[in-house]
């Protein structure tokens, strides 16, 4: 999923400073799962913002709405009937959702209420960790299901480096050495010989280095 964290309230309050009414829009997908921008977080932020305003002797009219997905135009369209209830939209979706709302409602200021962080998995309740960088050319089949691009601090294709110590990365003792994990996993699978294969330099054009990316499915595209 795409993970996110709410921005500091001070920053959000500065963004919406000129507004007397806002449309606060959450998203039922990734940001709900990582507890950053779902219905519950929308309610909490709404309450906090209103209290912050009332404390200053002003009021803030907040309309709360949570869409099924903010990154799909079909769902963003649902905002048509309520878009005028805010001087601006405050979106708790990831950056994709914020941009989709901004694209649809060109006359309306749209502000982000969360910082989009990374594509990750839940390690345990309340803890999320980065697992994929969307490099566009997946290597997991060669590395025992552990990604050296997302999980090795240096993105080494032929690791580990000299900074690996007792299974941990030199950047932080809490960070596992991805190449230690890869070796352990290959060993468990009886595929140690694969470790000897030298990976050639990666073609990063499939990643962000090739500019903004698109997927066009001819069978589906309208």
């Amino acid at each position: 999923m795409i993970t996110a964290e709410r921005k500091p309230l001070e920053e959000i309050l500065t963004l919406i400073e000129p507004c007397d009414r806002i449309l606060l829009v959450g998203c039922n997908e990734c940001v709900t799962v990582c507890a950053a921008g779902g219905r519950k977080e929308v309610a909490l932020l709404s309450s906090a913002l209103q209290m912050a305003r009332m404390k200053e002797g002003r009021t803030l009219d907040v309309t709360e709405l949570t869409l099924e997905r903010q990154c799909d135009p079909e769902y963003v369209e649902e905002l048509v009937t309520s878009i005028d209830r805010g001087d601006a939209v405050l979106s708790m979706a990831c950056g994709c959702g914020v941009q989709e709302v901004a694209r649809r409602f060109k006359e309306k200021p749209v502000f982000p209420a969360v910082n989009t962080k990374f594509m990750g998995a839940s390690e345990r309740q309340g803890v999320w960790a980065e697992r994929c960088q969307g490099c566009g050319d997946c290597l997991l089949g060669l590395t025992g299901g552990i990604c050296p691009i997302a999980r090795c601090s240096k993105r080494l294709l032929n690791g580990p480096c000299g900074g690996s110590s007792s299974g941990k990365c030199e950047i932080n003792p809490d960070v596992d050495c991805a190449w230690q994990l890869i070796w352990d996993r290959l060993k468990a699978l009886g595929l140690e010989s694969r470790y000897e294969d030298i990976a050639p330099p990666k073609d990063w054009r499939t990643s962000r280095d090739g500019g903004p990316r698109r997927i066009i499915r001819e069978d589906l595209a309208s």
Partner: peptide, 8 residues
Amino acid sequence: RLLDEIGM
């Protein structure tokens, strides 16, 4: 924490 953030 939230109340602290809004200065209450």
